[in-house]
Nucleic acid binder design. Structure first.
Lengths: 246, 246
DNA sequence: GCAAAAGTGTTGGAAATACACCCATGT
DNA sequence: ACATGGGTGTATTTCCAACACTTTTGC
């Protein structure tokens, strides 16, 4: 059992000076950010990975990440990585989970904050400079470096969940898209086929798709209408209670 | 524009030695864990807070937290805090989000990982040793120390969401509970009234409640049946697809 | 004219909602 | 007897799932 004083000592009832001295001395840990960058291409969900060059993980793929600078916000670090690797700003980014097992990194204690990001591959295509960087089909991902497999799995699950609750998916598509593309996207993310008629009914009944009076071009079949997502209208609607369901 | 070499340098394509030296030298940040500890008492959702003793936040309430030890897993740090403050082990704990604004803490750069925890107040009642520690009705929480208001709000929203999707709520109740207590719990967490008959129908149709053939004692009205939640049966059921809905 | 995907409605079942009365217990 | 909450059933509506044919375009 702890004495009251020890309890106070250990539990944060310290003077600012005491905390400051701890912060400045012993209890420091390296912090990194890792980004699971998703793209959608050829009707498949892809993820951008880089080859690890550490001997321990030679030839394995790893997520894009970097240490967080001491004077840098966490989100800013994630955006920095995205900018460096894809050339894109203003991309969708969401923090998912922080991974901090003591020995997760061979270089010492590194706690990493995982984000996932959704980008439009069309915009990005010309910006891959580094030939160690590749898009991978999410279905073929296994055996990554470090604990990146776990991080990736967690982020993919998060994406699958979120895409059903919020209109995130549109970040993976061009501004103008057909309903077929939208359905292909959902099928790729969730990994199962849906009924085409019910899918359309669902989205039309939400009433967030704007018919922009344009058609697909250069398709070898009847062209479909193109739509934009009405984010403003969506934002105005306050989120409803979903209901207990487990 | 960055050169290829700079890009490599900045983006993690470094030797292990280079990373090690960074990890060991400059890019270190203090890490803490903050716990939003929820309880349920007198039909109200409560949260356990401590009075801040920093001059800057004098008299304001703050979450229970502490720095993470360099050789300690993140979850272990959170459990340590819970054990110290409530005397309880084996409590429900879930990581929610990591907060890392550069100047969020007056003592320097401290990134904090927020958890929420659900405890059974009955078990805990005798273990509050520290008189700076108090249960607060969540509805009356405002103006906390540091950025703890934001952390608290985030965790409460997370709880509200999760409790609708998973059987977490039972962690706040005694092992044996009546349906009335269960409904009161949901109403307290979600902050609205539900129809009693439909609530019962819902839970009975899930078929996870075990009738333990006991009745409430010492109630000034007709006693209700007591139930336990069948976690094993729940675990066996694989999670279904929910459906697109936003 | 043929291949390929676009576009379109109906129906049946399941689940959610709204709603009112009798029952068991303590005082 | 009465006050309090326990326990139950039904009708209505809403939402979801299943399902097939005609149309438009490119080749």
């Amino acid at each position: 059992m702890l004495t009251g004083e020890q309890l106070k000592q250990q539990a944060g009832v310290r003077t600012l000076q005491a905390i400051q001295s701890e912060v400045e001395s012993t209890n420091k840990i390296a912090l990194s950010v890792d980004c699971v960058i998703f793209g959608f291409d050829e009707n498949k969900l892809k993820v951008l990975l880089i080859k690890s060059d550490l001997k321990k993980y030679l030839g394995k793929w790893s997520l894009l990440g970097d240490l967080v600078f001491p004077n840098e916000d966490l989100d800013a670090a994630a955006y920095r990585i995205l900018k460096q690797r894809t050339g894109l700003s203003d991309v969708f980014l969401e923090q998912v989970h922080t991974f901090g097992k003591v020995s997760r990194h061979p270089a010492g204690r590194v706690v990493t904050i995982a984000y996932y990001s959704l980008i439009n591959v069309q915009h990005h295509k010309l910006n891959i400079l580094d030939n160690e960087l590749h898009w991978h089909d999410v279905k073929s991902i296994n055996n990554m470096a470090f604990d990146h497999q776990e991080i990736f799995d967690t982020c993919l699950k998060q994406l699958q969940k979120r895409v059903q609750e919020h209109p995130l998916g549109f970040n993976l598509l061009p501004k103008k898209f057909s309903l077929r593309e939208l359905q292909n996207l959902y099928e790729a993310i969730l990994d199962f086929k849906m009924d085409r008629r019910n899918f359309r009914k669902k989205f039309f009944s939400m009433d967030f798709l704007i018919d922009i009076k344009e058609m697909e071009q250069d398709v070898p079949h009847r062209p479909g209408k193109l739509y934009k997502f009405n984010f403003e209208k969506y934002e105005k609607k306050k989120k409803k209670f979903i209901g207990i369901d487990f």
